[in-house]
Design a binder for these strands. Structure first.
Length: 323
DNA sequence: AATACGTGGGG
DNA sequence: TCCCCAAGTAT
């Protein structure tokens, strides 16, 4: 642990304003927080970890059912670690970004090997796990174990951008200034800081949303720099995620075929993007039709197919492919 | 720093 | 209907 000799440097906010922010947002959270399974009083580190992986870029409502099924099947890290990664990818279903399932599986194995099967509590240990970045490491240590860490996700960044910086949106990427601001806003008191992390994130998710924020319901509207400035537009236009015709779309269609399969399938089905003369197993027909409809170029098919193998999302043996 | 990486619900 | 994007990570 490195102890900085820096004293908390001059902030644009007075100590009084800061504590008022903490008080208002934390109080709002206690009254309005969603009742989510990974927030239950008896939650485990593993539950929090699984939820954080699933919530990376995926909305809560879609995570809920998959999370419940996942925990029923693999209530501990050791349970997941004991099965093949393909089982994890299949159970991941349509949450998207299936490599997260692979990384969660690898993280579970690392937890068994390095931490005796118990999800580690400290930021650095968590950060060393596959699929765990700065956000997830902080989130698990705070939400599961009540540690003091600065959680910075897209919701929190947006709340800070508006409330403190008076901007509609945070920077395109997390920078030193944003990180520094987030740390300055952190309550010194441990208990308060734990709630603050969750509360600020929840405020961003429910009230201070990206589009159509519900300012009339915001507990700190009268303290918001963005509101005070007349809610100016963002100084940049977020670049949309292209989709049609991309490798991601094709990979997704290939993965859908593999998930639908109940047994290894002839690799031609994927390598010819569904345009095959051989018989297609009944359960694969809908997914194969969607794949064929993309009508991809041979070069793209090859790139995506080998990419899935390379990523470990698909496995080929004796002319057959499986998860 | 910019880009790749899935998916489906809501406006 | 079509576009946007939701608790990020790895390279």
């Amino acid at each position: 642990m490195v102890y900085s000799v820096d004293v908390v440097t001059s902030s644009a906010l007075s100590a009084q304003t800061l504590s008022q922010l903490h008080e208002r947002i934390n109080t709002w959270f206690l009254a309005h927080a969603r009742d989510l399974p990974w927030r239950a009083a008896d939650r485990t580190g593993w539950q929090v970890m699984v939820s954080e992986f699933m919530l990376q870029q995926t909305p809560v409502v879609r995570v809920l059912p998959v999370f419940e099924a996942w925990m029923d099947r693999w209530p501990t890290a050791a349970d997941l670690a004991s099965v093949d990664s393909g089982e994890a990818v299949r159970a991941w279903g349509r949450l998207g970004y299936p490599r997260r399932a692979l990384r969660l599986h690898a993280a579970a194995q690392a937890i068994v090997e390095r931490h005796g099967g118990e999800v580690p509590q400290h930021y650095d240990e968590l950060l060393a796990l596959p699929g765990v970045g700065s956000y997830t490491a902080a989130a698990i240590s705070v939400f599961a174990f009540g540690k003091r860490a600065t959680v910075i996700d897209t919701n929190i960044r947006r709340v800070h951008a508006r409330l403190i910086s008076g901007k509609a949106l945070p920077n395109k990427s997390l920078n030193a200034a944003e990180t520094r601001l987030a740390e300055e806003l952190m309550p010194a008191d441990l208990e308060t800081s734990v709630v603050w992390n969750a509360a600020t994130m929840e405020l961003g998710a429910l009230i201070c949303t990206a589009k159509s924020p519900k300012c009339e319901a915001c507990p700190v509207q009268d303290m918001c720099a963005w509101v005070a400035a007349g809610k100016p537009e963002a100084d940049y236009v977020p670049t949309g995620q292209s989709w049609y015709g991309t490798d991601r779309q094709l990979r997704g269609a290939m993965m859908a075929v593999l998930r639908a399969a109940v047994a290894p399938i002839p690799y031609q089905i994927l390598k010819q993007a569904g345009r095959v003369d051989i018989a297609i197993p009944e359960e694969l027909v809908p997914a194969v039709k969607k794949l064929a409809a993309l009508n991809p170029e041979p070069e793209q098919i090859e790139r995506c197919y080998t990419g899935l193998l390379k990523d470990g999302l698909a496995h080929e043996a004796d002319g057959f492919v499986t998860l």
